[in-house]
């Protein structure tokens, strides 16, 4: 089996994997980082979004081997569980989540947006969320959360 090495949440990791191992399988099953979720098999729901070298990608539509040598960050990197990242705090403050299943993917997705557009408009946030499905919130409070989170991050 080929060996894959990458940096995940700042830590160097290395493992032998089957070539067909998806990045999300590597993250969930090899690294036991279960905050990244799988909600579909057609690359649409966005529950699996992580950052690859600073940009958001769908980890269900990428091989672990494609991330060889790359820097991957997952939802677990944002907080130690006590202090929330400003974007996470905004989601809590504005009730931007209900069941929580899509939430890690949404948060990782919008952090990519905010890194390029520190003060996104409502329409820009809605457009950006094309690749994230949420069945609980009607998106209303997600949009509010993203804008508040962006502001808190200094946008």
């Amino acid at each position: 089996m080929p060996t894959v090495s990458m940096t995940v949440n700042g830590k160097q990791v290395s493992a032998d994997v089957e070539a067909r191992t998806l990045l999300v399988e590597f993250i969930r099953e090899h690294l036991d980082l279960t905050g990244t979720h799988v909600g579909c098999d057609t690359s649409q729901c966005g529950a699996c979004v992580v950052h690859l070298d600073g940009r958001s990608v769908k980890s269900c539509t990428m091989l672990a081997l494609e991330a060889d040598g790359a820097e991957v960050t997952t939802i677990e990197s944002l907080s130690n569980g006590v202090e929330l990242h400003p974007m996470q705090a905004a989601f809590k403050e504005h009730h931007g989540l209900q069941c929580g299943f899509c939430t890690p993917g949404v948060v990782m997705s919008v952090l990519d947006l905010v890194s390029r557009n520190p003060d996104p408009s409502e329409a820009e946030v809605r457009d950006w969320l094309e690749g994230n499905l949420c069945r609980c919130t009607g998106y209303h409070n997600i949009i509010k959360s993203v804008q508040a989170g962006a502001a808190a991050m200094g946008g």
Partner: peptide
């Protein structure tokens, strides 16, 4: 009241069946 359960959902520490 802001939700008590949110912290684990927001930080990837929730515990769904597939986890």
């Amino acid at each position: 009241v802001r939700r008590k359960e949110d912290a684990r959902f927001l930080t990837g520490r929730a515990n769904y069946t597939d986890d």
